[in-house]
Amino acid sequence: MSSPALVRHPEDSMPATAIAEAGPAPAATPPAAPPSFGTLALRWYRLNRAGLRAIAIGVTSLIAFLLVWHLLTTYRVVFFVRFTNVPSPLAVYASFSKAMHDPKFLMHILLSCRRIFIGFSLAAIVGVPLGLIMGRFKLVHEIIFPVAEVLRPIPAIAWVPMAIMLWPTNEQSIVFITFLGSFFPILVNTLHGMSLVDPVLVRAAQCLGARERSIFREVYFPASLPHIFTGLTVGMGVAWVSLIAAEMISGQYGIGYFTWEAYSLVQYADIALGMIAIGVLGLGSSLFIRGAGRLVMPWRTT
């Protein structure tokens, strides 16, 4: 009933990121220096009022989400959508606390993370340098770009049958799918970043005696970094999408397999648990990328 509203409004999802960003802020209360602690605290509050507000609203909105979920499932609402078999938040929590002590569940998660790590890292290791080289050398661009453009629109999931044929083990084909999913966003964004490098900066470097290699390292690469990180963030998202799909189709382990298996075994609470785990892992990995981006690009204060 009110669930469409929850899904539709983008405002609902915004506080979630705000929480994530402002996460460490409350702990960072300034030390009691010369001005009294009270004035400092007050000043800190005034400066961070907007952030605190976002956190408060975000928490409220999450609680409201859980409450609506709880009501819809306890009353087994049927209104176009059927909540008859949907597990309640409490049931999901119960299966969560059980799963925490189940080494098998942890293994599912660990395996998925390993696949993401290998597939995504390979995509970054290949995609970023390839994008940089394609952006700098026209010939490489002219050779590789057409192939990339033909392959790019193929969703990673459509590669599953081909991947199973290509790779000797299931594990390898799943990692391959994850790699493909993140590879193209990374490549395309790196290329885009290269195309936007300000030519005046290149000329400035030349005037200061920089040769080709130095210009590449000192100008093209750092100038493209913001777009490279956009590519990594998008690529990480697509990596998870591809991984879960691949695990559902051909996996034996992994959080996607766990979710699908729960459905086959009629363990409805585990379906929601698997979904939430995927969401948390996805959020965590994109936060990780964002944090890495801040470390690598200290000049970007925003």
Partner: peptide, 18 residues
């Protein structure tokens, strides 16, 4: 070609932001 013997100053400043 360009060389460090001829220093240049541009209207758009063109400092390296990083």
């Amino acid at each position: 070609g360009p060389s460090a013997e001829r220093g240049m100053v541009f209207q758009q400043y063109s400092l390296f932001p990083w």
